[in-house]
Computed example of a mutant assay.
Amino acid sequence: MDKLKQGIEEMQNHNYEEAAKLFTEAIDENPKEPVGYINFGNLLTHMNDYERAVRFFNRAIELDEKAATAYYGLGNVLYEQEKYTKAQEQFMFAIQNGLDEADVHFMLGMTFNHQEYVKLALPYLLRAAELAPEDIDIQFQYGLCLAQNGQINETEKVMKHVLQLEEQHSDAHYNLGVVALHQEEAKKALDHFTKALEIQPDHMLAAHAKGQVEQALNE
């Protein structure tokens, strides 16, 4: 097994020092190969060493300006630092250079979300959802974005899909409760809010909504 693959395995097993050693050796053996720098950049990002991570990703881009995963790595560093506009640029470069994976579309969508551009977020979260139909987080965020864009029927479909993936998803139940209120189905809404609270007793939004629905039903 080559050193980069070994390094990635060590990183996944949280053996960061061993991963760093292997990536360093890989870079020393192939200093003109961008992949070693990208992997080291990813490792440094995991370790919250953002300043050095940026240097490694930039070095990879110097060696290959079409290194899509280097732009993706840079985007992640900027996202972690809540520099959403700058992160957005890097994720765009990654996609323009041929990276068409769920994660990059998801992260790009989330940068728009954090800036409250929910209409701009939607197509990227849709693409991520298409590419990763089994990813609970991606599906949920896509459903949430649909709700923010007022697409209530679509929201219902996606949140039900989230519950198929994870029955005990309190936030999906809460959002289905909100959908039911929009559809003027108070009893159904109450069931979902109750279920959300069974799963997560400290779910403040569900508790508040449940109280309001119960009050309305008793009047």
Rank of each mutant, 00 (worst) to 15 (best):
R127T: 09
Y117W: 14
E154I: 05
Y117G: 09
E130I: 09
H46T: 03
V179Y: 04
A189M: 03
E156A: 13
Y117N: 14
Y79F: 14
A102T: 11
A26E: 02
G98D: 08
E101C: 07
G7N: 02
H203Q: 06
L22Q: 03
E154L: 09
R55G: 11
N15K: 14
A94S: 02
P133C: 07
K195L: 11
G75L: 02
L125N: 02
F193S: 01
E51F: 03
T69D: 15
A189R: 00
H114G: 04
A129Y: 00
F56E: 15
E51D: 14
Q141N: 15
Y79V: 00
E65H: 14
E219A: 12
G41L: 07
E185K: 15
V118C: 13
A67F: 02
L190Q: 10
L190W: 01
P31C: 04
H192R: 06
N113W: 15
P201S: 04
F23V: 10
F93R: 15
A206R: 10
F112I: 12
K86M: 05
L120E: 12
F112H: 09
L190V: 05
N58F: 14
Q215I: 15
A60S: 06
T69F: 15
D49Q: 15
A121H: 04
E184I: 07
K5H: 10
R127P: 09
F93T: 02
E134F: 10
E184D: 12
P123D: 12
L176W: 00
T85D: 10
A121I: 12
H105V: 10
T45D: 07
L125R: 01
G73C: 03
G211C: 05
K210R: 15
G98E: 11
A189Y: 00
T24D: 13
H192Q: 06
N149E: 04
A68L: 13
Q168F: 04
V158W: 00
G150T: 09
E167G: 10
L74P: 11
Q168W: 05
E29M: 05
E184P: 09
K195Q: 10
M204A: 14
F56G: 04
D103Y: 12
M92H: 08
P123F: 11
V213Q: 01
V35C: 09
F112A: 05
T85R: 09
H182S: 13
A102M: 12
K32E: 15
V178Q: 04
N97M: 06
E9S: 11
H114I: 02
M110Q: 08
N58T: 07
N218L: 14
D64R: 08
K83D: 07
A60W: 03
D202R: 12
Y71M: 12
K119M: 12
Q115I: 12
Q139W: 01
E89Q: 11
V178G: 02
A87P: 08
G7L: 00
K21W: 08
Q12A: 09
P34G: 01
Q148W: 06
Y37Q: 08
T24K: 13
Y79E: 04
Y79P: 00
Q168K: 11
G211L: 07
F140N: 01
R59M: 13
V77Y: 00
I199V: 06
I138A: 09
G109N: 10
A53C: 06
V178F: 06
L181C: 06
G177C: 01
E18Y: 12
T45F: 07
M110V: 09
G143P: 04
Q81G: 03
I8V: 07
Q168T: 11
K66S: 13
A216R: 10
A216P: 04
G41F: 00
Q200K: 11
E156D: 14
Q164N: 13
E134P: 05
L4N: 03
